[in-house]
Simulated assay, not measured.
Amino acid sequence: MPLSEPAAREHIHTREVVCRGYRRTDGLWDIEGHLTDVKSYGFNTEQRGRLEPGDPVHEMWIRLTVDNQLTVHAVEVVTEKSPYHACGDITPDFQKLVGLNVTKGWTRAVKERLGGVHGCTHLVELLGPVATTAFQTVFPLLSREAEERAKAEGTRPVSKGRPPLLDMCHMFRGDGEHARRHWPEHYTGDRKDAAAAD
């Protein structure tokens, strides 16, 4: 169901974030994010001169190259358009992300390294949807392939430790129905209730 009918209004600003995930032939994954900000009106800027309606105020790109465990192997960041010429000067600092893991603690680790004056607000914000795109790209495909291999071999997929999605949201809570059915060895709910549900 979409949002309700809005009040009469005037369109002022659009921020678009597009993220894409790619499997590389070398076994790694590229996760890319692209952010643009545009206004519906023209205005003058101090360093770029006149921006017409639809001209990007911001246009920025991020590529994280990660492995199957979502450890960052390489980072590429480009500030193509920004209000000030020096905005892109901070992009080399994003190399501080190499070696981090895009799982629990990612947001905190990013803010510790690139928060405030040590980064760019827009690029740091873009790392949030880039991280969730990494999850959506890597884990479902690897899981599906493991299931297909197990089915072909007549076995069950082997669990490799704690599921990355466990306790990441209310759907995957440790004491919830999904955990009980799909990750019984990690289920933290009442075992008596679980037995009764079966």
Score class of each variant (00 low, 15 high):
A109Q: 14
P129A: 00
D37V: 08
V98I: 15
D30E: 09
G116V: 08
L114Q: 07
E52D: 12
A74V: 02
P53N: 04
V72E: 07
Y41I: 03
A109T: 06
D89G: 05
H118A: 15
P2H: 12
L3N: 05
T188V: 13
L100W: 12
R20D: 15
T25M: 12
Y41C: 03
I31P: 01
T45E: 14
G154W: 03
K151C: 06
V75G: 04
R20I: 14
A196G: 05
V102T: 00
G161T: 08
H122A: 00
F94I: 05
L70S: 00
T132C: 02
R144L: 15
A194P: 08
F43I: 05
H186P: 06
T36S: 12
T107A: 12
Q47F: 14
A86N: 13
L127G: 02
T107C: 08
A109G: 08
V72A: 06
L3H: 05
G161Q: 10
V66F: 04
T188M: 11
L114D: 04
G33Q: 04
K192I: 15
R9W: 07
F43Y: 15
L166A: 02
S4K: 08
A195I: 11
L142Q: 03
R162S: 11
G88K: 02
W61V: 09
P83L: 13
H73P: 03
M1Q: 03
